[in-house]
Design a protein around this nucleic acid. Structure first.
Lengths: 268, 268
DNA sequence: TGATACTGTCCGACATTTCGGACAGTATGC
DNA sequence: GCATACTGTCCGAAATGTCGGACAGTATCA
């Protein structure tokens, strides 16, 4: 079982020089435990967790009980499985509703979803992967929901091209793992093509992909900039691939206008 | 500075016999840290945190850095303050969207808010306090939003009466701290009156309060039951106090019907 | 019936994490 | 200029949390 890791930009093995032994602090175990739960997206048994994070069973019981008491985990599903608890929900809510920008992003999601009926997402980087931070799914039968929080290779996504816009070519080469250029259906994206597309996204101020991660979707992403003009998140539509060009054009303009409004001043 | 605690139903000092010294594990410090952040609802400096949770500065730095690396915290605000981070958001999202009941509750909130234009909330107990778990605020100028996650004395709320419905009288007496019967404006609720109101809520299957926690609101709460007929959460409207009786009646019926739909079968 | 696999708890030993204090650097006020 | 207060980092010592293994209890299978 591979150990969970993320947040290390480039070199996987260059993390903090952990004490070589396999003894770890409770905090580190806790972080790994929560990441494992997020990755699995289902209630886990204690021994499953122990295996996933490479911890002794006795230690895992200790930590799980501690987190249960804090309501950061709770019993869920049959046979003593555990999953995230109420406290987690409250912490996450506090994050999402703190700050003017966060609140406006949530409102914009609601508005775009209501006005267009399409699937709308906010996305960002997490480690060297792409994640959906929040979304409003299209109400129609054509529901294409990628899971919030699931890690996806950057080259599979329109947002990914925008989110790398601040990097140089060599930086990108070092940042994106080679295997992430392989699409789910087995096709490969050439690294050089990808670099060109990143440059194009930077120049145009948006990015589009179609039939990339799957055959049925047309994705368009617009940058949300933080106070230093850095693209910290993207705003996206996920459309059925047969959406007529004229409608796509309208939606793109709406998306660009909305994302511009959400961007913080400060960068030039 | 008082030490943070919750989850201990009745006796505050009867917690696990902590090792008498003031040395604590990283995990315990972490839990206290996150609770402090939730309670303060604003980015905190490391030394503020250290004071709030009663930990040495050096230890607090260690833990904060660890949580920053895991993105459970992030830099926020000026001067190196920290607040909840992206990972927290994802964990919380995973909690809120796991399980059929959770998803249906979120949809119901959206629907009720859209149909009525009123403020709607889901509430529950956390330790011996009441908290709002999620809400949709009324769009009108009359916005009465209690903060999600903020701990409120149980007797101040309509939901509180329902959430104690499963307890006996002595149990309630032991559970609710005496000071929680004091309202924000200084008035006192008599414990005996409160017990009667809990019994009434149990009998009627809903609870209403007006001008209780503040002078401007009429609250109505309906029970959401888990598989064992236990009232684990409530669904509530928070209305302007001058809402006409007929409309209140309509809203109450809507609320009761919605909450009944959300309740799980299993209890008789 | 016996063998195998699993859960949840307990315990002693030891490596490690926590702690307190020291330190340099910065900001502020007088 | 000097005193005060604060931040962020570093260090050695010692208390203690983590670990591995043992244990009883349960379930499954042949």
């Amino acid at each position: 079982m591979q150990e969970l890791q993320f947040g290390a930009p480039a070199a996987t093995e260059a993390r903090a020089p952990l004490p070589l032994g396999d003894r770890r602090r409770g905090i580190d175990r806790t972080v790994m435990l929560l990441e494992a739960l997020l990755q699995q997206r289902r209630p886990l048994r204690v021994s499953e967790i122990a295996k996933l994070i490479g911890a002794p069973r006795s230690t895992t019981y200790e930590i799980v009980n501690c987190l249960l008491e804090a309501e950061m985990l709770e019993q869920a599903g049959p046979e003593g499985r555990v999953y995230f608890g109420r406290a987690m929900h409250l912490f996450g809510w506090a994050y999402g509703h703190h700050g003017e920008q966060n609140r406006r992003i949530a409102e914009t999601l609601d508005r775009l979803a209501a006005e267009t009926g399409e699937t709308v997402q906010v996305c960002a980087l997490r480690g060297n992967k792409y994640v959906v931070l929040d979304c409003r799914d299209s109400p129609g039968p054509f529901r294409i929901s990628s899971e919030v929080g699931a890690a996806v290779p950057i080259p599979w996504t329109a947002s990914g091209r925008l989110l790398l816009a601040h990097m140089g070519e060599d930086e990108i080469r070092a940042f994106v793992p080679a295997e992430d250029y392989r699409l789910p259906d087995g096709r490969f994206i050439a690294e050089e093509d990808f670099l060109v597309e990143v440059a194009e996204a930077r120049r145009l101020g948006y990015s589009e992909t179609h039939a990339l991660a799957d055959r049925f979707t047309w994705c368009m992403a617009a940058p949300i900039r933080d106070g230093r003009a850095h693209v910290s998140r993207t705003l996206c539509f996920v459309l059925p691939i047969d959406t007529p060009e004229q409608r796509r054009q309208e939606l793109l303009e709406l998306l660009l206008a909305s994302a511009a409004t959400l961007s913080l001043a400060g960068g030039t």
